[in-house]
Design a protein around this nucleic acid. Structure first.
Length: 629
RNA sequence: GCUGGCGUAGCUCAGUCGGUAGAGCAACGGUUUCGUAAACCGUAGGUCGUCGGUUCAAGUCCGACCGCCAGCUCCA
């Protein structure tokens, strides 16, 4: 056998070809798989050629992926033992767990999960070696036919001719899989099945419904416990739950998908909207308001009728059909057209916060995150082609200010020309180049999703990262070369000739409803002082301090602070508890001592009792704190 | 929209075998006047999601519909 040279952590060793990574691993316990020459391989896979070996552990995302993928196989093996007539679909690893789609003769419920977990643990204890098999297509077909795995046969049939067909065996179980996998089932130290639901085979409603079982797994119990605690934390932060507890909003079955804002929620909502107005005014945006119902001819012209019709709320009156707007762009195009525009008028930046409606399918509705009636911090920029770069720069600046204000990091994805693009290729190329230049000029790291742009222009999607590390797509910036065509928009250029402007669709928060939902979860309902619907609550200790509490509140109101007095006949501990539960940022306890000396005893949501200070001093300080954002 | 689960007081939930509705919190009334996370006593509150069916009798069993939850799908 030929000798091959392997490099591990900078050290070179020479071995015979066919040596396995597991034979040369420096720390045997931790390694789950190996990264060599651009691919992850099983530790047991014989190495044909030399190269740089990097051993993957649970700390590597690729290592976790292998671990969870093997966990999915373990799940399938357990289910097959319990229900031999089960037929396997597919079972991939997820970001922090795994699932397996399995056809079963009877539906499962969560009550069945402990039984399956128990069987999984048994198979872990049996500690089977996990072994890779390479098969010809005929062998693979025969193998899965014998086992009654009709879905697997279907997958085998779809594998391209030049691909290697592999399967993995562990004890009595074999699954079609390209791998890689853990060397032994015994490595899966802690696991939990989390939920069960339905999913169509290959994601198509016309196909049979499979049972999808979700789970997660870790090398040890500690990791699993931490993960489950994090899930609990996320549940506690669920904006639907907090929204009800904090009296921000509610939903009613009389209007599914539409929000009822309570005064405190509306206060927050207005705050966000005004924050956006304030930023945009400074940057030369002009706010407009355009109609919210248009005759169908408008939607035909804009292209919505063809592409978006099922999502429109339609109104049939007087033998004609009208549609409630799902977005503002057509209205803004009509405004642009209403006068002759000069090249000097551009860029023209139109902002609008009007209500928008989209008929989301009933199963898609989800609290504030997916509604049928909403508003966006929407704007359209009508620009000359030579202005694209500078305007994009300005938009990204706005994005940066907004997300920094809410203490959120963000990630940018550039989506480029799809195959079915429309418009001039030269314009596309130039625009894409300029977008990249702007991203680089701003020092932003970005990913490219080649071919994922809209047919009418390339776009930037911006993902906000919240305090739990979750990503939310909020801001989006889309160049549009098509809508100006459809609406025959023109400006008169310097040379006296009519030219076609480019449109930039952009939203920073996106849907303000949804953004507020994200903020509720991001802050766990404890909004920073400048946003909090009630900034200060005054808590008189007895009825004797009601008059003084009124004086305190009035002084704060005059300083622009949103303040409430809790004048109920309750003990101070009760009032404090309630204010804490409602996450009021600052509480002022006022008793006889304070009334006599003109002080307030400050207690903050985060730090508890701070102590007494003169009223005037507090008013000035809190007004200062409330300004910072 | 599809599959599964759920729907009882404002909220969180109990309600056995089909026999006619229950608790805590909140609300309201009273007592208490209190210094940093829940005082005490009392009162009131229900078309058991809606409609239909089975039954002497339905919160409970059956069907349809509505809404919510999870997932799928969708999100030009």
């Amino acid at each position: 056998m030929a000798a091959i040279e392997l490099e591990i952590d900078g050290e070179k060793i020479v071995k015979e070809a066919g040596v396995r990574a597991v034979d040369v691993v420096p720390v045997p316990g931790n390694a789950l798989a190996v990264w060599v020459s651009g691919q992850t391989l099983d530790l047991n896979r014989p190495l044909a050629a030399g190269g740089n070996l990097h051993f993957l552990t649970f700390d590597d995302s690729a290592g976790r992926h292998v671990f969870r993928h093997s966990s999915a196989h373990l799940l399938a093996q357990a289910v097959k033992r319990l229900w031999p007539e089960a037929k396997l679909g597919t079972g991939p690893a997820l970001e922090d767990g795994f699932y397996y789609d399995i056809w079963l003769p009877e539906p499962l419920t969560e009550k069945d999960l402990p039984r399956i977990e128990k069987m999984m643990r048994k198979i872990v204890a049996e500690n089977h070696a996990i072994e890779r098999l390479e098969l010809s297509r005929d062998e693979a077909m025969a193998l899965f036919r014998d086992r009654g795995e009709s879905f697997k046969e279907e997958i085998v049939a779809r594998i391209p001719d030049d691909a290697v067909i592999s399967a993995y065996r562990q004890g009595d179980f074999v699954d079609l899989c390209s791998g890689p996998h853990l060397p032994r089932t015994g490595l899966i130290g802690a696991l939990k099945l989390t939920q069960v639901s339905g999913a169509y085979w290959r994601g198509d409603e016309k196909n049979p419904m499979m049972t999808r079982i979700y789970g997660t797994s870790f090398p040890d119990q500690e990791g699993l416990d931490k993960h489950l605690a994090a899930i609990e934390e996320a549940k506690l932060r669920d904006h639907r739950k907090l929204g009800a507890q904090l009296n921000l909003f509610t939903f009613r079955e009389e209007a599914p998908g539409f929000v009822f804002w309570y005064p405190k929620g509306q206060q927050l909502y207005r705050r966000l909207e005004n924050f956006s107005r304030q930023l945009q005014e400074v940057r030369g945006y002009q706010e407009v308001a355009t109609p919210w119902i248009y005759r169908s001819a408008l939607w035909e012209r804009s292209g919505h009728w063809d592409h978006y019709r099922d999502d429109l709320f339609l109104i049939h009156r007087d033998d004609e059909v009208q549609g409630v707007k799902p977005m503002n762009c057509p209205g803004h195009c009509l405004l642009f057209k209403s006068e002759t525009r000069s090249y000097r008028d551009l860029p023209w930046r139109l902002a609008e916060y009007s209500p928008l409606s989209r008929y989301e399918r009933s199963g898609a509705l989800h609290g504030l995150m997916r509604v049928r009636g909403f508003h966006q911090d929407d704007a359209h920029l009508f620009v000359r082609p030579d202005q694209i770069r500078e305007e994009m720069f300005g938009v990204l600046d706005l994005v940066d200010v907004v997300y920094r204000t809410f203490d959120m990091a963000y990630e940018v994805v550039l989506s480029t020309r799809p195959e079915d693009y429309m418009g001039e290729l030269a314009l596309w190329n130039r625009a894409e180049e300029e977008l990249e230049e702007v991203l680089k000029a701003r020092g932003l790291k970005y990913q490219i999703n080649a071919g994922d742009g809209a047919f009418y222009g390339p776009k930037l999607d911006i993902y906000a990262v919240d305090s739990l590390g979750r990503r939310w797509q909020c801001a989006t910036v889309q160049l549009d070369f098509q809508l100006p065509e459809k609406f025959e928009l023109e400006y008169i250029d310097q040379d006296g000739q009519p030219k076609r402007p480019v449109m930039i669709h952009r939203a920073i928060m996106g849907s303000i409803e949804r953004f507020l939902g994200i903020l509720v979860e991001h802050y766990a309902g404890a909004f920073p002082l400048w946003l909090a619907p009630v900034q200060v609550r005054v808590l008189p200790i007895t009825d004797n301090q009601h008059e003084y509490a009124g004086v305190v509140a009035q002084a704060l109101r005059e300083a622009g602070i949103r303040v409430e007095v809790d004048a109920r006949n309750q003990k101070i501990g009760y009032k404090i508890r309630e204010a804490q539960v409602e996450k009021v940022p600052e509480m002022l306890v006022v008793g006889g001592r304070d009334a006599d000396s003109g002080t307030v005893s400050l207690r903050t949501r985060e730090d508890g009792d701070v102590g007494a200070l003169p009223l005037a001093e507090y008013v000035q300080a809190v007004a200062e704190r409330a300004r910072m954002h």
